[in-house]
Design a protein around this nucleic acid. Structure first.
Length: 534
RNA sequence: GAGGGCGUAGCUCAGUCGGCAGAGCAACGGCCUUUUAAGCCGUGGGUCCAGGGUUCGAGUCCCUGCGCCCUCACCA
């Protein structure tokens, strides 16, 4: 049992010990100062960590209300309509003797609170002990200062939480990218733009669910722990269940389970699926990420194109409120409908010859120093496609009808067995979604899962899942299926250059604690204070 | 995994040719009833990411390690 890390029943301890005995962290001078203030506050018989504070109006709503109230500069309004209760974190603080102005931020925006010695009376002593970063609540009257700034003049004020650590620099916020990812809580409260990204992320996901609900889909949850991984070509994470004494994989895709749902008669299903791939990390790749997958019985990949447009184009229009959104150097035009281009046509257009001209494909690959002899034809073709075509796919573009060997889970074109009825949606050169007319022929499925492409590493190769094929043998309706990378979608719509900017807590390497960071739990605390040294 | 860049006060950043470790914000003490990144006077604060080397002398040059970012590869 570790010592108590929260002031709860042991709160009086805080009043006695300025150096709290539970902390293993080095105490900077600023933290020492704040703890000294904490003690003073407790000595004033005030709870520095507040309590329920009901009836708060959001800062943005107070601003809206103020527009209809017509407040003159220098005026403090009389009457019930001017009384508001608000709360938030102090982000700017101006102490002018017996008057304090503070800019207080909640998740809707900022509002100036005004505290005067005369108005807050017995609370004044606590008010003088406030620091940047503290969370406060105020009940008061709306007014404007003589410079016209909307101000909530406190008649009552409460300290709702003392901040024992100082916030980052008030103007620049937290800029160090590494610390923004490692200490996201600090990033969120000091960088409003970061907070907004995650609010918008939630709205985009809500919007997606609304679209699917309107279309009659139900949300299901399928296993993350899977005895056999499948549904994509990727290296999995391996874990182990002790009681069953059995190795399990973290899913790389929910596909094979969602298709079992189709077999069972759940005709329209989707999942916001956290997936895990044991691959490299990049601005577009995180080991865990969120993929929307959905399956619609009796549909095909054309239905999936409609849904893709409705989700992505709709979210741009209705959540972001724009049909054109700039990211990096490009302005993406989300105006619907989006062009449908055949893979074969794009290949011929940008590479210069047909994709099924094996001799030319091999020759070009050799020029690019692709190690083509080891690879299957289709893999080489796709390498050329990625090299020559994908850089041109800036505005949303559906790429249709892929070489069949690349698509083991996709129905073949009845008129051309070399082609699979699959599309990928590209935006800003990035693959955002992937959809099939789903293969529902169990014999063909068994065959495509058995066949391995040269050029794939052993771990990423499709794995035969007999249980899944047996499910297909029970009869799966013809269906359209779609996967959309939610993180990538959020990146595009929020203009975020890295997937880490849209994940609250992206995976980071373990810290070795050289330098700027703090010792971990259980390690010896550094010498407190530091003032005496040197 | 390969290549390139970065790491200095709590935060944002300077630091010239190798010659006393700097600024702003934040903090601390003082003044101030209308501030807007408040202002003014004063004060404290550094493992220059870590370890080694070169040198009379290293934040600076060299080597090794760690972390982050970018590009590439794998992948979505």
């Amino acid at each position: 049992m570790t010592t108590c890390v929260r002031p709860c029943a042991c709160r009086p301890v805080l009043g006695q010990d300025i150096q709290p005995r539970y902390s293993t962290l080095p105490m900077s001078d600023q933290i020492t100062d704040r703890r000294a203030k904490l003690k003073k506050i407790i000595d004033l018989d005030v709870d520095p960590f507040g309590e329920r504070y009901p009836g708060v109006t959001a800062n943005a709503d107070i601003r809206t209300a103020a527009e209809t109230l017509k407040i003159e500069a220098g005026q403090i309004l009389e009457g019930d309509k001017a009384v508001f209760k608000a709360a938030g974190r102090i982000v700017l603080h101006r102490d002018i003797g017996s008057l304090i102005f503070m800019t207080v931020r909640d998740w809707t925006g900022d509002l100036q609170f005004g505290l005067s010695k005369k108005m807050v009376k017995e609370h004044w002593k606590v008010a003088k002990l406030l620091d940047l970063g503290d969370i406060v609540g105020v009940e008061g009257r709306l007014g404007r200062t003589k410079t016209g700034e909307l101000t909530l003049w406190a008649t009552d004020f409460r300290l709702l939480s003392k901040a024992l650590r100082p916030p980052p620099e008030k103007w620049h916020g937290l800029a160090d990218i590494e610390i923004r990812y490692r200490k996201r809580h600090v990033d969120l409260y000091s960088n409003p733009a970061s907070l907004r990204v995650f609010v918008q992320r939630a709205r985009i996901i809500d919007y997606t669910r609304d679209v699917l609900r309107r279309r009659g889909f139900i949300e299901v949850e399928t296993p993350v722990l899977q005895p056999i991984y499948g549904g994509a070509a990727a290296r999995p994470f391996l874990t182990h269940h002790n009681t069953l004494d059995r190795d399990l994989y973290l899913r790389i895709s929910p596909e094979l389970y969602l298709k079992r749902c189709l077999v069972g008669g759940l005709e329209r299903v989707y999942e916001m699926a956290r997936c895990f791939r044991n691959e490299g990390i990049s601005p577009r790749h995180n080991p865990e990420f969120t993929m929307l997958e959905l399956y619609q019985a009796y549909g095909d990949y054309h239905d999936m194109m409609e849904i893709t447009e409705e989700i992505i184009g709709g979210a741009a229009r209705d959540v972001i409120g724009a049909t054109k959104i700039k990211i990096g150097e490009h302005e993406i035009d989300y105006t619907l409908p989006w062009p449908r281009r055949k893979y074969a046509d794009l290949f011929a257009e940008y590479v210069g010859f047909p994709w099924d001209d094996v001799a030319q494909v091999r020759a070009r690959a050799r020029e690019l120093k692709i190690e083509e002899p080891k690879l299957d034809d289709a893999v080489v073709v796709n390498a050329l496609f990625e090299h020559y075509v994908e850089p041109h796919l800036i505005n949303p573009t559906f790429v249709l009808d892929y070489p069949a060997p690349l698509c083991p889970l996709t129905k073949r074109d009845p008129n051309d067995p070399d082609v699979a009825l699959r599309f990928e949606i590209f935006i800003n050169r990035m693959e955002l979604g992937n959809a099939y007319s789903e293969l529902n022929d169990p014999d063909q499925q068994r065959e495509t899962l058995s066949r391995q492409l040269r050029g794939e590493e052993e771990e990423t190769m499709a794995v035969m899942d007999e249980d899944f094929v047996a499910a297909l043998e029970c009869g799966m309706p013809p269906a359209g299926g779609l996967g959309i990378g939610i993180d990538r979608l959020v990146m595009l719509l929020t203009r975020s250059p890295s997937i880490r900017d849209v994940l609250l807590f992206p995976l980071q390497r373990a810290e070795q604690r050289n330098g700027k960071d703090e010792p971990r739990e259980g390690e010896a605390p550094a010498e407190p204070g530091g003032r005496s040294s040197r």
